[in-house]
Design a protein around this nucleic acid. Structure first.
Length: 487
RNA sequence: GACCCUGUGGUCAAGUGGUUAAGACAUCGCCCUUUCACGGCGGUAUCAGGGGUUCGAAUCCCCUCGGGGUCACCA
């Protein structure tokens, strides 16, 4: 076997699905691990289902995730074109060869006839398969049909016997050819069906391995038969388990986010999504949970891919996202976070260098305790706006207490006397105040936090003060004192 | 319905005839702490069921049940 060549072959009918992303990822990992090539091919033969912009959406999602390809759209390559719609001549040629060899034939059955057959089978409660009516048409009959203007499809002549699919993940899977009918390989409009196009393409593009979702397994024997009929060498197959929704059903819109874009919009980082996806259906040796694309590529093996489908669990994704939020370089996190800060109305769309610096310093502290970019932006809001309301339960607990205003007043005084407003000095001022006055530390810290942020949780109190600056800190203290006194 | 795949805690998942059945997320408790998060320690919880094979089965075989997928001139 030559060097490894694998492909990800999405159909451009929408966004990049999380399951598709995982398939792409496994292909990428396998290619990388084996110093092989990753090909991106667009399966756009069904013009009816084609969606505008879908290709660019899929491409941008893949890029965003960090999944690259050596050949395909944008990058080109020696095995192009990489759009099936531009490869029609290849399918036609191979189809004609099959017909010349008697391995395929024209079928002129109308959809009405086919439907009637199907109905008859249904009534007789027998499994439906194509009747084979056109299997042995004479040249004369064919001419006659053609003269009538009927456009034929081309069907594959299903041979007798069994077909074995050798699958790296699942072992040998045997299918009875009797259960498969003479399926269509070329539609009446001259466009190949999936099963035919995929075989011609995978062969002509030199694919050594076909790694795809489990849902393709039942189709594979047909493809194997086609490989044989065409005299191609069969690639190695690996059908990876599917990703299911929490209720074990197929992941769909009603389960919330299913596309990579949606996860992005919910504030997940590409590094985290990729990390999570790597762990779904595959696991590295040892107890590693946090793993980079590069490390995974080094270790990746199809032998360690699971057989059973996995239920995707957003809770664990969220945990992983939190890990990356605090461990990735601050610049990276801020880069991803900016749109969320804009969306929260914290900085303008045409933000300045100053805005950026502020986001950086705020995010640096806030990211420690948040798990998504959405939460990060929300938890940062009071650093940018002073229009917040005091949290109700905080007010009850800390503001509506005997002497609350006085405590804040003494805090305010201690702070205002500071020349150099640093976290160390501010903390010292508070600690000294506590020591001198005998005020309990919690009686001072909590109301201060509520005054400065409107909340009962957040970064270290003195970090907040520094981020706010002396002037703003004092202003907020004063406002809180007034508020308490008005209660 | 037919065919195919699959079945270890709530979820991910290690495990390939002999283990006290790892680990992670979640959950519960404790600790750390100005709060939250992080972190640390500990707890609850798993081999779908039934038959075999074997001195010995999560691991091998069979059946049942559960889950999923495929049955197009879609991909």
């Amino acid at each position: 076997m030559g060097s490894v060549r694998v492909r990800f072959a999405p159909s451009p009918t929408g966004y990049l699905h999380i399951g598709g992303a995982r398939t792409a990822l496994f292909n990428w990992l396998f290619a990388r691990h084996n110093d092989g090539k990753m090909v991106l091919r667009i399966e756009d033969t069904d013009q009816g289902r084609l969606k505008e912009d879908s290709v660019s959406q899929i491409i941008s999602s893949l890029k965003w995730l960090g999944i690259s390809w050596d050949e395909g759209p944008e990058t080109g390559g020696d095995y192009g074109p990489y759009f099936q719609s531009e490869r029609l001549d290849k399918y036609t040629k191979e189809c004609e060869r099959l017909m010349a060899e008697g391995k395929a034939y024209y079928c002129f059955c109308t959809s009405e006839e086919l439907e009637a057959d199907k109905e008859a089978d249904r009534k007789a409660r027998r499994p439906h398969r194509y009747s084979g009516r056109c299997r042995n048409l004479t040249d004369k009959q064919i001419e006659k049909y053609k003269a009538e203007g009927r456009k034929p499809v081309v069907r594959f002549k299903m041979p007798e016997g069994n077909t074995v699919v050798k699958d790296i993940v699942r072992g040998d899977v045997t299918f009875d050819n009797n259960l498969m009918d003479d399926f269509v390989i070329m539609k009446s409009n001259g466009i190949p069906t999936y099963n035919f196009a995929v075989v011609v393409d995978d062969h002509s593009m030199g694919m050594t391995h076909v790694i795809r979702g489990e849902e393709h397994l039942p189709n594979t024997p047909k493809q194997v038969l086609l490989y044989d009929a065409l005299g191609y060498e069969t690639p190695k197959f690996a059908h990876v388990p599917m990703i299911l929704a929490p209720d074990k059903s197929k992941l769909s819109k009603r389960h919330g986010a299913t596309s990579v874009e949606e996860f992005r919009d919910k504030g997940f980082l590409p590094e985290a999504i990729v990390n999570y996806l790597i762990l779904l259906g595959w696991s590295p040796e040892g107890n590693t949970e946090i793993i980079t694309l590069e490390d995974a590529a080094e270790q990746f093996s199809l032998k360690r891919v699971n057989k059973s489908s996995a239920i995707y669990d957003v809770t664990k994704l969220t945990w992983i996202n939190g890990v990356y939020m605090r461990e990735l370089p601050l610049e990276d996190v801020v880069g991803y976070a900016l749109p969320f800060y804009i969306n929260e109305g914290l900085i303008p769309e045409d933000y300045t260098e100053q805005d950026l610096e502020k986001v950086k310093s705020v995010a640096d502290k806030v990211r420690e305790r948040e798990k998504t970019l959405v939460d990060l932006a929300k938890a940062s809001s009071y650093f940018f706006k002073f229009d917040y309301e005091y949290e109700e339960k905080g007010v009850k607990k800390f503001f509506k207490k005997e002497g609350a205003a006085d405590v804040l007043k003494s805090g305010l005084k201690a702070l205002s006397s500071l020349d150099e407003f640093t976290a160390e000095n501010a903390e010292k001022a508070y600690r000294d105040l506590i020591a001198e006055s005998g005020i309990k530390s919690s009686k001072l810290f909590h109301p201060t936090r509520l005054a400065l942020s409107g909340r009962t949780i957040g970064p270290g109190l003195f970090d907040i003060m520094i981020l706010l600056g002396k002037e703003e800190t004092l202003k907020r203290m004063e406002k809180a004192i007034n508020y308490i006194e008005s209660l």
